[in-house]
Design a protein around this nucleic acid. Structure first.
Length: 367
DNA sequence: GAGCCGTGGAT
DNA sequence: TATCCAAGGCT
């Protein structure tokens, strides 16, 4: 057991990590692996940027299919900039945090029109673009442009907080932790260092049951010295989620078309497609029943759908109608063929609501 | 600075 | 079942 020490010098730690990365890095569709990099292959900034935005608060597993879809449909940032917003939103549907998709489009347009289709190659330049914050600016600068930027995400926070046994709770301790990262980041291979820290956090230095025996920092880790790595990082307590309730109305006309609407551009599910719903509030369900439907008809109750958002839980009562569409009902929306619902920008909660009323709307072809 | 902003997988 | 939380950004 070490008594003092100061973990070894920053350069040594970085070297230990890079050696580990050379052997244990993950192969990812947007990544240039060390052997490829050794042959002079550089990452494509567009690919790094797109993957980083998709990966914000989102798992690698979930991102892979979306990244492939975007690569096929929009191979360049110019192609993405020229795409209709509705197409981009529909392609993003299901991935969540839809402000990312709106900003993705804005960012692509800015790069295409203001920068000639090339991403800025500095942290500050990247940081000024829509949807690119501290993390993404540093990540793209380091990975795509080999800039020695201090990259800190949730993985890095975990690794650093354990390595130095930082007791101060997040997010307050973030600046101090970033300073540590900056000290450790090597001048050569800053991009690989950043990716190595994140791979380490994702595969070895995990939130639960970290595989410390396999960690390149096992001889330097203060948390491991203390015998309880899971204690880090220390985080501020989070508050509980309120429950909101509402009703959703799935209307199907005589041609088998469903009444849809587009949500306002900002806020929750901004710019996405929905079926008509009441407001989502905390009142009792009886006050938001079929009397709030988009038109008067024999609405049939068909159960409830529960969906958990980031800061509240939603309980939606679902109502179904099948019959001739009243005149003028779709002035603020449109009737969409059930067979074409997959091409719409429907967030998951809306697919759940529609599936409750029309079980065959989204055939379960998985598994 | 703290609240808002999705979703699905792991434990 | 409940909880956490994943390559965060914007206001």
């Amino acid at each position: 057991m070490k008594t003092s020490p100061a973990p070894t010098t920053g350069r040594t730690l970085a070297q230990e990590l890079l050696d580990w990365y050379d052997h244990h890095h993950r192969d990812l569709p947007w990544r240039i692996s060390p052997p490829m990099a050794a042959r002079g292959i550089r990452p494509e900034p567009y690919h790094i940027w797109l993957s980083e935005v998709m990966l914000q608060q989102t798992t690698v597993q979930a991102v892979k299919a979306y990244f492939a879809k975007f690569m096929t449909r929009w191979p360049t940032v110019d192609a993405l900039a020229a795409a209709p917003s509705e197409d981009v939103m529909a392609a993003w549907a299901g991935l969540g945090y839809y402000a990312r998709a709106r900003n993705l489009k804005k960012c692509a347009e800015a790069v295409a029109s203001l920068h000639g289709g090339r991403f800025p190659d500095t942290e500050d330049g990247l940081r000024s673009l829509p949807g690119i914050g501290d993390y993404t600016a540093a990540a793209v600068a380091a990975i795509a442009f080999n800039r020695p930027a201090a990259v800190m995400d949730g993985n890095v926070e975990r690794v650093i907080s354990r390595l130095f046994a930082i007791d101060a709770p997040l997010p307050g301790s973030k600046p101090a932790m970033k300073a540590r990262v900056a000290e450790l980041t090597p001048i050569d291979r800053p991009g690989d260092f950043a990716q190595a820290m994140m791979d380490l956090g994702a595969t070895i230095c995990t939130p639960k049951r970290p595989a410390c025996a396999l960690c390149p920092f096992r001889g330097d880790c203060r948390a491991l010295d203390g015998d309880d790595p899971e204690r880090f990082p220390v985080k501020a307590a989070k508050k509980e989620k309120p429950i909101r309730q509402g009703a959703a109305f799935v209307a199907v006309d005589m041609d088998g078309k469903v009444l849809l609407r587009r949500r306002v551009e900002t806020g929750l599910l901004g710019g996405m497609t929905e079926v008509p719903t009441t407001a989502w509030n905390s009142r009792k369900d009886g006050e938001t029943g079929p009397s709030a439907a988009p038109f008067f008809a024999e609405w049939q109750a068909c159960g409830t759908v529960t969906h958990v958002f980031t800061h509240f839980e939603l309980r939606l009562s679902i109502y179904r109608f099948h019959g001739p569409a009243p005149e003028g009902v779709a002035v603020h929306g449109w009737w969409e063929d059930v067979a074409n619902l997959d091409a719409q920008a429907l967030p998951t909660v809306m697919k759940k609501a529609i599936s409750q009323a029309i079980p065959e709307a989204f055939p379960v072809n998985r598994g």
